[in-house]
Design a protein around this nucleic acid. Structure first.
Lengths: 194, 194
DNA sequence: TAATTTACTTACCGGTTGGTAGGTTTTTAC
DNA sequence: GTAAAAACCTACCAACCGGTAAGTAAATTA
């Protein structure tokens, strides 16, 4: 069974929205990339907002699946947490796009934050916080606020991942490798305790 | 001497670009806010790109000034670093806008990262890294890579600041206060050593 | 096979985009 | 006081924006 047009539109939209943001992407661009007319796109997604919502929903799903995945690999909360952030740092193109989309949403969500109760990242954030609270029952992360703890790691990691293309151009390959290694070391230090 | 139109255009553009991004802001919007015709704006800034460049340049200047300021307040590298991040967390509206602009630039700069050598954040980043390297001569931050160290703190802090409006809606006022306090505690722990 | 739904197409719409051309008013310099 | 330059303005442009209307071809179902 070949890839459906709707799926192709969705994945193309994910790429373009992550690259250029909501306003920087036209539905025409998305449709043209899939060799479909603009109205062909509007048949599957009745408006640009709906298309964007579908992209965001898929991205949210991706992250929740990721947490589910790392939870099957270990019962130890520390290992789970480290595995999660390692996968974010060593992300493939698709996961990278999800992280970028997530960051853009955070920026664009600022003003219209009233709708934050249905914030698409909420389930993911809750899942990761749950790992930390379960870790507390195992004797880890004592004295930390789970939310602040998670948010710190999330912020540092996502910011690093997003900066990487820029850093790649600023520093040599060796410096970049060293930087990534030391970023992982800092994560390890924070997660496994100093 | 009254505020010049050019300055009003610049500050208005800063607000709108930070709120809605480059593509989400039209020069018409900026001009209208200052009660000037679009062509009045184009007289001062011959193109939208030039206007944006001026906004970014001013934002970069703001950050470099901030570093300069905190360096006069203490000779201790640890205190300097903590003061810097404290000011970012407790930023006024203007500084908040700068941080948002900075984050947007990082996202939009991904593809056109070839021009990163003239990345507008470079001077700021170099300044902060210089604080850490000078701290090493004072006996602090031993065994850390200055760049990775700075980047970690920068990422965690900026991500937190940008998330705040969303978090405000997700959690109660007390939870939010606690979160901010614990974010500062984590920064303190990392900067002053565990 | 006929009927119906799905998956598109072309044609078109009003509104907005960044930008140009050219003129007018206001300020500055001498 | 006059000339020049700076600071605007109105009018206009082609291109693009998201979206509607109406029709067609292909797949699905009865």
């Amino acid at each position: 069974m070949k890839l459906k047009t709707k799926d192709k539109l969705l994945s193309t939209a994910t790429i373009l929205f992550s690259k250029n943001g909501f306003y920087g992407t036209s539905i025409n661009d998305v449709a043209a990339e899939v060799s479909v007319s603009k109205q062909g796109l509007l048949h599957h997604f009745p408006s640009k907002e709906k298309l964007y919502a579908a992209v965001i929903a898929q991205a949210a799903h991706h992250l929740v699946d990721l947490v589910e995945e790392i939870k099957t690999e270990s019962d130890n909360a520390q290992n789970q947490l480290f595995a999660l952030f390692k996968r974010m740092v060593c992300a493939d193109e698709e996961r990278l796009r999800v992280i970028i989309l997530l960051m853009r949403e955070l920026l664009d969500n600022r003003e219209r934050a009233e709708q934050a109760h249905k914030w698409f990242l909420r389930p993911f954030l809750d899942d990761v916080v749950a790992i930390v609270t379960s870790g507390e029952r195992q004797g880890y992360f004592i004295g930390k606020s789970p939310l602040a703890f998670v948010y710190h790691l999330l912020g540092a990691t996502q910011y690093y991942v997003i900066s990487r293309p820029t850093l790649d151009k600023l520093y040599t390959r060796e410096e970049r490798k060293l930087h990534e290694q030391q970023h992982m070391e800092m994560l390890k230090g924070i997660i496994f305790g100093a």
